[in-house]
């Protein structure tokens, strides 16, 4: 009971009121404001993290798309290249065939020209032979023929033909 003398009802009441006053003040200026600040910051950090996660997922998705597109581009490029090679081959084949055709045409035309020239030459030769024959015949007619002279005329004729 001696211990209880240390207590004072008035002081207890006053201290209770003081504490309640402090609780009211701190609730208003400290707890309400700072818990709100901390909550806001926590929410903001959480939302930022969520955004980062979303951005990360977007990046992954874009990367996957990019890889798919890159593969597609590589495939398309390969196809284009193959097409170009095939086209080149086709063009070169066409050129080769065209060149062959042109060459053949030139050969054919050259052959025709040669044949023409030969024909011309033959005609010329024929004409010459005819002229010579006519000339010889004229000579034969003009001169009195002997056996020796005949032989000479024939030989001369043969020589002329050889020269022609």
């Amino acid at each position: 009971m001696e211990l209880l003398k240390l207590l004072s009802a008035n002081e207890i009441v006053a201290q209770v009121i003081s504490f309640l006053l402090l609780l009211f003040i701190l609730r208003k200026f400290l707890w309400n404001k700072f818990t709100k600040v901390l909550d806001d910051r926590r929410d903001r950090v959480a939302s930022e993290l969520l955004k980062i996660e979303d951005a990360k997922a977007d990046v992954e998705r874009i990367k996957a798309d990019y890889n798919v597109k890159l593969d597609g581009i590589e495939k398309a490029a390969k196809e284009k290249m193959e097409e170009a090679i095939a086209e080149g081959r086709r063009i070169s084949e066409e050129l080769r065939q065209g060149a062959e055709r042109d060459g053949q045409k030139m050969i054919d035309s050259a052959k025709l020209a040669i044949e023409g020239e030969i024909s011309k030459a033959k005609d010329q030769l024929k004409d010459d032979i005819v002229d010579i024959t006519i000339g010889i015949a004229e000579k034969v007619i003009e001169e009195k023929l002997t056996e020796g002279a005949d032989k000479r005329i024939v030989e001369e004729f043969i020589k002329r033909i050889d020269r022609a």
Partner: peptide, 14 residues
Amino acid sequence: PTSNWSTTMALTIC
């Protein structure tokens, strides 16, 4: 003030 029992008792009552 907490060396006074009345103070600590007041807080305890709260």
